[in-house]
Design a protein around this nucleic acid. Structure first.
Lengths: 220, 220
DNA sequence: TGGTAAGTGTAACATTTGTTACACATTATG
DNA sequence: CATAATGTGTAACAAATGTTACACTTACCA
């Protein structure tokens, strides 16, 4: 869950000689000043927009998974690429610039042409969207769990799968609480209860799973 | 939010003469009996699987938006197409047949070839995934709202946008409660409070928005 | 190294939501 | 039409979580 999306960095290399894109690609570049509203919720999205310079803010789930509030998007990253091809192709939120911004615009028909002619472009596009979907699915699964201990259990079991019984988490309690969408003291209470119950142990940011079965039971 | 996905029905027409797909498409068809576990959580997903006959169940968010429990998927529908191209291309859940089932399997490389050679196929694939993403985003937004009244407000404002101040909702309270992920009596309480406060009025399944501003304030 | 900011543990209390139970209304069905 | 099944309103109470507050620890940095 890094804040950069390496698969799209190629966009920042956009120039005629470097050529990740064919020289004949049809596109336009739009520049905006600070605090301009560049997309409005409900606007029809008939092109692929890529933020190539600057940053914008929008109300969505954030890149690091926090609950919706203001998300800040930094270049280079595509803006809501998932909506370009949806039946109801409208922006779900407002998008406002936070500084001077450059946006690359590739019309939908051109995107389709690129996809068929440039396999790498297509793969990157697909992968980016697939990753986004996976991310959303995961978040949805986490949010659907109703108890705090359940959320913690889900999260820890996931970590456990990846790193084994003992691992460190590089978020503090406040960040974790935001991630789970709960209040910080409530999270602390649940954590300390789980420690008391001997299910996990915590030392600084080192978490150790002591009782896998116990954790799994917390998922209901 | 119908349970069929018309854009994929073309798959059921799969035969050499009808030719939505080119005659030389590489694929295989797999049949399974009732109650077979056909995909396991964590399995690598290296092909596009389309359920062409029968039904399977899986634990995910349901097609009509209910919280994760058992989702039943009926043919024809692709199975988790979003994960084929993700970096971590593993099935997020177990998939079990509920009856005799046929699954069409198209290897990933073949999917890529089809996408570049058959623009319609590509568009349908993209649209399907885009719709799915939009759906997930919407659900996530709803679930992120922490109060019941907030969820109701979000939902009603959405309906209001589409159908105006007055509209009917074809779900009963129990279904609505599941949709919101809350208990039925809690939902009823919140609804009747909102009626008392003069924000909405309800007659049978006819909902009328009396105070848009009041609703919007409930979103925090 | 001392001071400041950031992070953690925890307690008392408020609020929201869930649970259970039941009366009543509405709808389907023989 | 009678009866059952389904849906709705609501109340009393339980449980979970949020809120606020504060003491204490750790990390940072001037």
């Amino acid at each position: 869950m890094k804040s950069s999306n390496p698969e799209w960095v190629g966009f920042s290399l956009l120039d005629e000689e470097n050529g990740f894109f064919p020289a004949d690609m049809i596109y336009s570049i739009h520049t905006y000043l600070k605090n301009e509203l560049i997309f409005r919720q409900g606007d029809i999205c008939e092109a692929l927009y890529v933020l190539i310079k600057g940053s914008v803010k929008t109300e969505m789930i954030t890149e690091n998974g926090n609950l919706l509030g203001i998300e800040i998007i930094k270049a280079p990253r595509p803006l809501a690429p998932a909506f370009l091809f949806s039946d109801n192709n409208r922006f779900p939120v407002d998008v406002t610039t936070m500084e001077a911004v450059e946006v690359l615009r590739i019309p939908k028909v051109e995107v389709i042409r690129l996809m068929t002619s440039q396999i790498d472009f297509m793969k990157q596009f697909l992968t980016h969207n697939a990753n986004r979907t996976q991310f959303l699915t995961n978040r949805l699964q986490l949010l659907s769990i109703k108890t705090i201990k359940g959320k913690i259990a889900h999260f820890l079991l996931e970590q456990c799968n990846e790193h084994g019984q003992k691992f460190s988490i590089n978020r503090n309690q406040t960040e974790l609480a935001e991630f789970f969408g709960v209040a910080r003291p409530s999270l602390a209470r649940s954590l300390s209860e789980m420690v008391q119950e001997g299910i996990i142990s915590i030392t600084k940011k080192e978490y150790t799973i002591l009782n896998n079965k116990g954790l799994r039971e917390l998922l209901l």
